[in-house]
């Protein structure tokens, strides 16, 4: 899958309270969650973001609470992918489980500037910065996770496994 969008840069340790504050966790409606995405890190983010745009974070993106509302909110506001130097553990799982594309690359996180236009080939894990004319390779997913991604998220993977067990 190929993605294209403008980069929105954030710093290190962007936590899930900043991505979607707890005051909005009384709903699971993606529309409401999307309308408040990144609100406590950048109040105007949802006004600026366009469909397909890409969030670029630093170290430990998505740390803090386990709320899956965080990747749901990012997806719902139109962001197509998150690139970061590193992701916090639970956010990483949640992104894979909910089908939010994420890529880990220190070089990309360091090199990309606010507003750069990026083209991403998810299959190859390559990030092309057309503004700076640079290319970065993201870390490949472990094979085990590839299987979940290919199945179309965790629940599909689980359904398939339950079926296999029943027919065995």
């Amino acid at each position: 899958m190929k993605l294209k969008g403008k980069a929105h840069k954030f710093g290190d340790n962007i936590n899930t309270d900043e991505i979607i504050p707890a005051r909005y966790l009384n709903t699971i409606d993606p529309k409401v969650l999307g309308a408040h995405c990144m609100e406590d890190a950048d109040t105007d983010f949802v006004k600026k973001v366009k469909k397909g745009d890409i969030i670029v974070g630093g170290r430990n993106f998505g740390c803090g609470s386990s709320r899956e509302h965080a990747p749901l909110s990012i997806k719902a506001c139109g962001v197509s992918c998150v690139i970061a130097e590193s992701f916090a553990r639970i956010f990483y799982r949640n992104a894979i489980n909910t089908g939010l594309p994420i890529l880990e690359s220190k070089l990309a996180a360091d090199s990309i500037s606010q507003g750069d236009v990026l083209e991403i080939d998810l299959k190859k894990g390559s990030i092309n910065n057309t503004t700076a004319n640079e290319e970065y390779d993201a870390q490949a997913f472990p094979e085990f996770m590839e299987r979940i991604i290919k199945a179309g998220g965790l629940m599909n993977y689980v359904k398939r496994r339950i079926k296999q067990k029943c027919t065995r």
Binding site: N94, L154, M155
Partner: peptide
């Protein structure tokens, strides 16, 4: 350890979970 809601759903369905 903590996880997300979908992971919990999978465990509620199967009693199993993947770990690294």
């Amino acid at each position: 350890t903590g996880m997300g809601s979908t992971d919990l759903a999978a465990v509620m369905a199967t009693g199993e979970c993947w770990f690294k």
